[in-house]
Design a protein around this nucleic acid. Sequence first.
DNA 1: ATAATTAAGTCAATATGGCTGACCTAAATA
DNA 2: TATTTAGGTCAGCCATATTGACTTAATTAT
Lengths: 160, 160
Amino acid sequence: MADLNNLLTPLFLNEKEIRKIIELMFFSYRDFTSGPDKILEKLNFGRAHHRVIYFVGKKNNLTIKELLSILKITKQSLSRVLNQLVKEKYIILSTGEDKRTKKLSLSKKGQDLEKKLSDIQIAKIYNVIKKFEEIDINGFKKVLFEMIDHDNQKKFDEIN
Amino acid sequence: MADLNNLLTPLFLNEKEIRKIIELMFFSYRDFTSGPDKILEKLNFGRAHHRVIYFVGKKNNLTIKELLSILKITKQSLSRVLNQLVKEKYIILSTGEDKRTKKLSLSKKGQDLEKKLSDIQIAKIYNVIKKFEEIDINGFKKVLFEMIDHDNQKKFDEIN
DNA sequence: ATAATTAAGTCAATATGGCTGACCTAAATA
DNA sequence: TATTTAGGTCAGCCATATTGACTTAATTAT
């Protein structure tokens, strides 16, 4: 691995500064997910349920295959979580035009939970970014986007 | 929850833009951890082992209590992971001046693994931030820091 | 028309990483 | 001397992920 501490390296690129970013990622992600986690716990759900509800809420009539390609988990892993959400009527299944496929959408109950969970994260982000200038927020978004692997950047662009 | 989509809200603060940040956090954190995960798998270790090695490497002679206060997991959860790392001689235990405490440090083997794992993340971050101007990186770091809960911001400052 | 592929589902086993509760020892401190 | 603190341990539970093997039904290619 390259020596990142040579004299030619600008201050903000040296290893110590980069290690701070590693820690910022760890701490911020943990606190970012902690809010919804508490609500999910009461429902005997986990973070995986949130993700499913989030992305189904984002794009109605998502198929299982599309959802799997976003979440990048196995269908066996998704199955447990999704079956619970369907059984408890947060998510509604219907058949696609291609009759092999299933379309997922949120029920009213599902929409309510989605909003409740996402509102916590939205409020947290809102309260953070309102403190900053647009230039900082743009830096934040641009750098975060570049932290994503190329294939997943495409996935992000697809859904946005 | 407040309506975030009223006309007074600047463009970068509206709900759609904030939801993009939610997704950026999800995708970037997943890709950020995927590199080390592959190496850890070969050693029959997980992400929890990486965290322990990372923070012990960062501050030599860390006590169990200090480590727990960073990781915010129970001692029972830490115990399983830490015992493995000690048994396989990645981490060395010694007794503190207060003889109730134990001090944790990395062996040579532990240092080598720490470097191997962290170098992946350091390289990833390095390759990202070298593309940007310092102003963007500062925005990134400032906003990420603000995403951390107050108590954990203090924790971050303590260790840095 | 038949063969191959695709979307989805299911069963079983395994690993990892959290948690709670209960209980213990030894050392430091009040 | 009593209490608190640091650390350890046993047991059980739950959530989330994995791999592998196999099935069904529908679509597409030959």
